[in-house]
Design a protein around this nucleic acid. Structure first.
Length: 250
DNA sequence: AACATCTACAACCGCTATAAC
DNA sequence: TGTTATAGCGGTTGTAGATGT
């Protein structure tokens, strides 16, 4: 869509392509991540054979190529959730996106800016067809820092560990040992029923979902830092504190 | 049919947070 | 403690396609 010319990259004098990604570039990025995983966005483009910045690769992956992205129209239910969550959180697009499985922050931001905002501007009240029953509670403290009540929705709500950027940025985990040699996705691993259960959790307990959302939605399939699989996250029967303690003791 | 305007959305940019050194 | 590298977020831009005149 957006077409930009190749520009010289100041740092290494290579030419960096900008603008819309084509199918060949998508294939290169997918193939590379399938083979090597995501180790460093900045240094990935060159070995992947892409004349793109790491930032551009990350954006393309996160917003379009990542498994489990839902392409297509926003449903009425999703719209209701966006409206309600925006009312509660403001422009915290990433946080709102974490409540809507398969939707990206960019997509939600665009939807708001191009459709919903206009309705407000025109003086039409945004009516929610069915209440979402979302309650915002004071946040739980994170592992390494106390929580402020006003900090709802910020990135700091995701439990931090030394390698936090690892699971934050790794949209997926590819298991070479898998006999089927294919991507794992939350629905692959935990099944539709568990996926629905997770969504239900998200609605029932905002904060619980906040912490799960950071790991589950952003990391896609697995949290290697914790050494546990997604189905362990969603099937944990105890409280959030119990869950975190279990992880630390592992 | 030709042109103007609008809409949707992919992708960019600048900034901040965090980790590593 | 300061600096640097990296990832992530939110605001904004640019353009293809749709719609209106």
């Amino acid at each position: 869509m957006v077409q930009y010319p190749l520009r010289p990259n100041k740092s290494n004098n290579t030419r960096v392509k900008k603008g819309t990604w084509n199918a060949e570039e998508d294939q290169k990025l997918i193939a590379y991540i399938r083979r090597y995983g995501i180790w460093n966005w900045t240094h990935m483009p060159k070995p992947a054979g892409l004349a793109r910045t790491g930032k551009s690769c990350r954006l393309r992956w996160m917003n379009y190529l990542r498994p489990n992205i839902r392409h297509g129209n926003i449903t009425k239910e999703e719209e209701d959730m966006i409206i309600e969550l925006h009312r509660l959180l403001g422009n915290k697009w990433a946080t709102i996106a974490a409540r809507l499985p398969g939707r990206t922050d960019n997509e939600i931001k665009n939807y708001w800016n191009t459709r919903l905002k206009k309705r407000i501007r025109n003086g039409n009240k945004l009516q929610i067809s069915s209440p979402c029953n979302i309650k915002v509670k004071p946040s739980l403290p994170t592992i390494d820092s106390p929580k402020k009540e006003t900090d709802i929705g910020s990135r700091s709500e995701i439990p931090r560990m030394s390698a936090n950027s690892f699971y934050n940025s790794y949209g997926v985990h590819y298991d070479d040992k898998s006999s089927e040699n294919r991507w794992h996705s939350p629905s692959d691993m935990i099944g539709e029923e568990e996926s629905l259960r997770e969504q239900s959790l998200a609605l029932k307990d905002f904060q619980f979902a906040e912490n799960f959302g950071g790991m589950y939605i952003q990391s896609g399939a697995m949290t290697p830092v914790f050494g546990c699989m997604q189905h362990e996250l969603v099937s944990h029967s105890g409280s959030y504190e119990d869950f975190m303690m279990d992880l630390w003791e592992k």
